[in-house]
Write a protein that binds this DNA or RNA. Sequence first.
DNA 1: AGCACGCCGACT
DNA 2: GTCGGCGTGCTC
Length: 802
Amino acid sequence: MIAEVITDVSAHPVDRPFDYIVPERMEAVIERGARVKVPFGNRKVLGFVTAFKDTSDVPVNKLRPVDELLDLEPVLSTEMLELADWMRETTLCFEIDALQVMLPSALRAKYEKVIHIIRAEQLGEEVARFVGSRKTVAVKEFPEPMLPALKRLAKEGAVSIETAIRQRTAVKKERVLVIAGPEQLDHVHALVKKGARRQAELLEWLQSHAGETIPSRDVMEMTGTTRATVRALIEKGAAAEEQVEVYRKPEVGLLPEAAGDPVVLTGEQADAVGRISASADEGREETFLLHGITGSGKTEVYMQVIRRVLEQGKEAIVLVPEISLTPQITSRFKKRFGPLVAVMHSGLSAGEKYDEWRKIQRGEVKVVVGARSAVFAPFRNIGVIILDEEHESSYKQEDSPRYHARDVAIRRAKMHGCPVILGSATPSLESFARAHKGVYTLLSLTERAKQQPLPEVRIVDMREELKNGNRSMFSVELAEAIRDRLEKGEQTVLFLNRRGYSSFVLCRDCGTAVQCPNCDISLTYHRATERLQCHYCGHEEQVPLTCPECGSEHIRFFGTGTQKVQEELHRLLPEARVLRMDVDTTRQKGSHEKLLRQFGEGEADILLGTQMIAKGLDFPNITLVGVLSADTMLRLSDFRAAEKTFQLLTQVSGRAGRHEKEGEVYIQTYAPEHYAVELAKDQAFEPFYGIEMANRKRFSYPPFYYITLIRFSHEDLMTVSDRAQKAVAWLTDKLGPDSLIIGPTASEVARVNNRYRYQCLIKYKKEPKLAGVLTDLVQIYRNTWMKEGLLMSIDMNPSSIS
DNA sequence: AGCACGCCGACT
DNA sequence: GTCGGCGTGCTC
């Protein structure tokens, strides 16, 4: 038997299956989707078995046997193997990357070079002393100066250097005591010596738990005894100690008032649940776009559909944008479905993620709530896949494999015969257009679940404020409104769109900001470290005392970070209690939940934050939302700038007045007449959709055209510009006349990490040749440009082109 | 001669 | 990606 194996080597020339002989002893147990250890060149690597066959085209003398079978139970199903093929084709990634992304990182291999001692007497004094009596030693343990000696020893055959494969995180084991039966314990009683008070105490406790199995640690804790005592009784036969597999228990901070029980549905909600359930019952692969204004109760619809699916013995996947950012929604699922829910998010450790994954794999849970990668949850009988906030750009992975969770969800639904729900108050233009065309089924929720009116939204023209001499971050109106809430004991949420607005250091004399030495971008000032940082390459430096350009001492901080707003807020309203939520205050594990809980329990009057507070926040006492700078995003040179601004403003406004008290929203902007700002005021999605669609059509952008972005980078400006030019010329020649090729142009940030960046954009409606042409372009790249140090990457469906 | 370094091709 | 093989050029 021959196995086809995809090896754990992410590189072009080996992006294909390699044939291996399956040793007889493995033949009965090896399966597709299992991991194996195989010899590859002069080392051992991990690989995935993707197929079997009887004969190979490879010359027999080149074939080598599989070294070791790592999984008796395959880690990837045939569905997943097929899905990986599809991902390779649609995103142009390596097969191995597609396979790896579906598994928890704990299952990935870690390679370590070790030396095996063959003839200890030959080692020489120094090495021998270091090695001691060990048979194998990791190479990295040796001090640098000893390495040449090791090399020589390897050549002489006194030692061998090999790569060991280690699994990153193992199954967690715990010691348990299997306590003997009562008669046996009585028997032990006689053996305990008179003076052994501790043992007698412990034995008495054990007698009251005869026959049970209890974790050793718990036993010691409850009886106040130590290992020595326990061991003494084990020797006398009072109990046996065993190792059992356990799951790690991630800390789940359940938020207090997240409702657990199903609620009575509005007519619209009930209709949505009915239609989706019908589709699920019939096993139809239908995609629904659930368009519901903020506060219309989309989550309740999801949960009732899931309940129906569970009743049929099927499973459900719920995707939310970066889950640690929305503890409220996970709390609701945990409360509703209890132990049937697994949660997968970036806040979990590798071991915790692995444990959650195993629960899914073994069928111990039926619902998974997670971020993007949870779309690969290893369920076998999926009944529904849900993407909440489907317009969120975090569903697109920005590095290889550049997949979109929405596409994967729809693909998996096809294979399982089940519906997909795309939920949003502000759907992506792509999805809404598809719903209009009838590709997706549109379901609308137009009323708020608790019948509250939409909040009153006021747009504040900051140019007027400036004219009137108000140079602060707060307009007179907004400041007044905050003060008003403070007096009433109600809560305020202030939102700062930080992008392009962080603090930087500017010279007042020559007007330049301090730049990163490696990238064409200004450095950002970080209060916590009191240093300047580059967000692209990570470069860090001291804040200069004089301008590096002109030597002037007149340099000062400019721009607005959350810290600065907090200071200004304190000056304005010294009595207000402010909670700040941004990357700096939420870096610690669980701090996000903690801050939200504090705010929910009324420990602060004002919550000040960035993007991360725009979603999911749902507290009854919030009656005021302020957006400090609505239009910073509009300045981005990206075709989605207006869409993103509209979505963000609508989401943020939706945080106010979700319960009994009415809400009010202030949007401060320098572009009050922009349609994205004006229409967000009334959550007027359809009018916005109309205008934006017209613009997209005029400029040939999605959803009218598909786009593919090709990026190039090189240390030398001339080289990158020339190769990009050559690539574009080649594409123009090969692609059909209806495809538009834009560029090459220098990227928005033209240099990152001392590499110059160019890009070009292909726009097309139908281009059957595209896949083939791009594959050929990659061939050219591999054979020529890659060797000169050029990097080229292709994004088949970029969410942003800036 | 002895080796450091960079380039190239192979990996079943 | 990572290795060994091979050529070049430098030093003792």
